[in-house]
């Protein structure tokens, strides 16, 4: 059972508020959640429910107001402060990001869009390009390795973006509406790919989504409302590939 293993992401009583006094807005109110290896989890909720804030906290992009955060077995936030000085490095090592609109750099071809993440992590240019080509081949997009983003279809671009997210072999992948810009057929392909990655890379995938058509690809769907996880729906046994 996944729950018997050490969680890759452990959020404990995390809160986040903006402003003070009458202007204070509580985006997260003591949220706790564990996400295990090979688990694909959806964060669902209306606008302002706190799902993107939770994704940003897990991604070490914004400072929580309180609580604790463990990533890959390492406590990275506690007692109101980050325990790592270099959050950029932390993101490079542990987290991959997949964006709603793929966010590929328009001036780099598919290979270099992946290689840039590797070079930022310190790989040489040649090693980065080699690994990038491997990843593109793995995601069955190798034949488009020299294409510029403007020449890629939505599905192809999203697969290149996934390759970039996987470049430094992170075990935590955060996806912000990964299928929002895709038609239903391509959305299914991308979700199948993410499930495959979770299984083969022993990774956790956490996605913010509104797309009901893809709920079947998640192990759990966490419903957020007013900064708290109101309900968790277990869709499929954790770690099971569809």
């Amino acid at each position: 059972m996944a729950q018997e293993r050490t969680p890759l992401v452990s959020v404990r009583g995390v809160s986040k508020h903006y402003g003070e006094g009458a202007a204070r807005v509580d985006a997260l109110k003591g949220v706790s959640i564990d996400i295990f290896p090979r688990e694909v989890v959806a964060l669902l909720g209306p606008s302002g429910s706190g799902k993107t804030t939770l994704l940003n906290v897990i991604g070490c992009i914004i400072d929580p107001s309180g609580g604790a955060l463990d990533l890959d077995g390492e406590r990275v936030f506690d007692n109101g402060k980050w325990l790592r000085d270099d959050l950029r490095r932390l993101r490079l090592e542990k987290i991959g990001f997949i964006f709603q609109a793929h966010n590929l750099l328009p001036f780099l071809d598919a290979t270099d869009n992946v290689a840039v993440a590797l070079e930022l992590a310190g790989h040489s240019q040649s090693a980065a390009r080699r690994r990038a080509v491997e990843l593109l081949d793995y995601l069955e997009i190798g034949h488009r390795r020299d294409a510029m983003p403007a020449k890629l279809s939505g599905g192809e671009a999203q697969r290149v973006a996934i390759a970039r997210a996987l470049a430094n072999s992170p075990r935590i992948i955060l996806a912000d509406e990964p299928t929002a810009a895709l038609d239903s057929k391509r959305a299914q392909i991308v979700m199948e790919l993410l499930r495959k990655l979770a299984a083969e890379q022993d990774a956790s995938i956490i996605a913010v989504t509104h797309d009901e058509k893809i709920f079947g690809y998640f192990d759990r769907v966490c419903h957020l409302r007013d900064g708290v996880i109101e309900e968790e729906t277990r869709v499929a046994p954790a770690g099971q590939s569809v």
Binding site: G59, R88, R91, L92, F97, N103, L105, L120, A121
Partner: peptide, 10 residues
């Protein structure tokens, strides 16, 4: 693009 670069570790 700059935000993306920052997010992926630039």
């Amino acid at each position: 693009q700059i935000a993306t670069l920052k997010l992926i570790g630039a």
